[in-house]
Design a protein around this nucleic acid. Structure first.
Length: 513
RNA sequence: GGCCCGUUCGUCUAGUGGUUAGGACGCAAGGUUUUCAUCCUUGAAACAGGAGUUCGAUUCUCCUACGGGCUGCCA
């Protein structure tokens, strides 16, 4: 049976940026291909010329690359089955439509869009919300089944606009087995005579899709659930052409985190999380945020998406791409839609951040600083990352929570100053400053030892003194081990920060009084 | 409205004809910590409802409810 090589395709329409649902579909295709040693193909379905969006094609390619799931062949990636863009394959489709006409499986229809709108409107007014062009109604329409042969020829010769529609038979059950959903069955009485070929000379999605999947030797069609209703039509077309149909797998949809409905473009920025892999600026100049720019790692992003509808069947949750390729099967994909959980997404990123070495984080942090034109530091970046990574979710947290390493101390946290800096503190800190000056070894352990000896000799409590020391070195009331911070800053900087800090806080305090 | 698909903690989910229905995120409490975060422990939290089938159904069947998708010369 399926000795055939596994070949799957991701076939988006370049009408805008890809959102996470689309990327997940691409990911599942990629994982399936890798798991079976097959090919993953990118095909652009741009048969609707009115919906062309500048930059969308490149956006799709860039997104897949960023996520690390580049196609083996396809638009922008080469291959032997090209072109991979339907607008460039335009000439291929007509003969297939003609073949169906010759075989009596399809027919010409001359009804104008206006006439069809009129039909639907009238039907609606008469209480029929779903008027369809089908085996019943087609006899009342202008087509090659209802018109005389002479008139049809006349119209064709005159160059009257026409479409080609499938002639859906009456009362026939179409069944197919979906890998995820099992047997799906629909009666053709509920199906309409879909347009296969448009008046502008382009095929519709339905025709192009079948012809391309067949000629590109696609073995499995893995796509979103929104295609399930047209799957019977596609099945019927394979039969009409007498082609072996690929296997189908319809993926559940990704839903909004709050109310009902599938995740849409606006949800992300409304709810404070991205729905797109990369930033996207529309023609009006509005920017929609992307995972990349929001600080997500590609591997975390992939992990998040993989688990929206799939799981390994045990309790592991952290999977990199290689592991996913090894373990992914369509049989373990769920049937029901998943609501996107922004909190869980952050948690994943945090896990991946912590897995990274301090050197790796240091490089990323340098990139972040450069990209955003932020203040660089003369301190070693890796130890800072080592110190901050436990409490960070994104690279930017390392910078923001450790600003004092980069921008120095620019202010003193009001609350901590008010609550912890007592009258006698200035004196204590000045004494500690003198001691600190005499210390040569500024390793964290040694500073801690000296500090503790100091407070013991003064009969002071750690909780009363340390927050003030922290205030002097960082300007903030909380953070990682202060002694480690001191080690990174080094003796010179510690002394200098203490001197200016004591002076400034004392001044602030005296102004209050 | 019609057709199709779905329904286990708030969310993502595991799971079985007989289980204390498991995990993760989030939430709450306690512990650790100079502090914040981390970390550890504990806790609250689910089989949509109703009929069947069965000795026994969360698990199988049907109905209802709810959710979702589709219903274009869009994909």
């Amino acid at each position: 049976m399926s000795e055939k090589k596994v070949r799957v395709r991701f076939a988006p329409s370049p009408t805008g940026p890809l959102h996470v649902g689309g990327v997940r579909t691409a990911l599942y295709n990629y994982l399936f291909a890798r798991h079976h040693g097959g090919d993953f193909i990118l095909r652009l379905e741009d048969t609707d010329q009115t919906r062309f969006v500048e930059g969308a094609e490149q956006y799709i390619i860039d997104s897949l690359k960023w996520a690390g799931i580049s196609p083996d062949e396809g638009q922008g990636f080469g291959g032997d089955f090209g072109p991979y863009k339907q607008s460039e394959r335009k000439a291929m489709y007509k003969p297939y439509a003609d073949q169906l006409i010759e075989q009596g499986k399809a027919y010409y229809a001359f009804d104008t869009p206006e006439e069809l709108d009129q039909m639907r409107d009238n039907a609606k007014k008469m209480g029929m919300p779903n008027w369809q062009y089908n085996s019943i109604t087609r006899s009342n329409m202008k087509n090659s089944l209802s018109l005389s042969q002479e008139e049809v020829e006349e119209r064709l010769k005159n160059g009257d606009p026409y479409v080609i529609r499938i002639k859906m038979p009456r009362d026939m059950d179409i069944k197919f087995e979906d890998i995820i959903r099992g047997w799906v069955s629909v009666n053709t009485n509920n199906l309409d005579d879909k347009v296969l070929f448009k008046a502008d000379g382009m095929p519709t999605y339905h025709l192009a899709n079948i012809v391309d999947d067949h000629t590109m030797e696609i073995s499995h069609v893995i796509r979103g659930e929104e295609w399930l209703p047209s799957a019977p039509l596609h099945q019927f077309l394979y039969q009409a052409f007498e082609w072996e149909a690929p296997k189908f797998a319809h993926l559940p949809l990704i839903l909004k985190p709050d109310g009902p409905g599938k995740l849409s473009k606006r949800d992300g920025d409304r709810l404070g999380f991205p729905v797109f892999p990369l930033n996207w600026t529309n023609s009006e100049g509005e920017v929609y945020s992307g995972y990349k720019e929001s600080g997500y790692f590609p591997d975390a992003f992939v992990n998040i998406l993989a688990f929206l509808g799939w799981n390994p069947g045990d309790e592991r949750e952290l999977f990199n791409l290689d592991e996913l390729c090894k373990e992914f099967t369509l049989e373990r994909v769920g049937k029901s839609g998943a609501k996107f959980d922004p909190d869980k997404a952050k948690w994943y990123n945090q896990q991946y951040l912590r897995q990274r070495s301090s050197d790796e984080l240091a490089d990323l942090l340098k990139g972040y600083i450069a990209e955003n034109g932020l203040q660089n530091t003369s301190f070693e970046m890796a130890p800072i990352c080592e110190l901050m990574k436990e409490r960070a979710t994104f690279i930017k947290d390392i910078y923001e929570d450790g600003k004092y390493f980069f921008e120095g101390v620019t202010s003193y946290d009001e609350k901590t100053t008010r609550k912890k800096w007592k009258e006698q503190t200035t004196g204590i800190m000045t004494e500690w400053l003198e001691t600190a000056k005499s210390i040569e070894d500024y390793s964290a352990d040694h500073v801690e030892e000296q500090f503790k000896a100091f407070i013991t000799s003064k009969e002071l409590g750690l909780g009363a003194v340390l927050p003030n020391f922290r205030l002097l070195l960082t300007g903030v009331g909380s953070g990682p081990s202060l002694f480690s911070i001191a080690e990174i800053l080094g003796k010179e900087e510690v002394i200098s920060r203490m001197e200016t800090g004591i002076a400034k806080i004392t001044e602030l305090k005296s102004q209050e009084a």
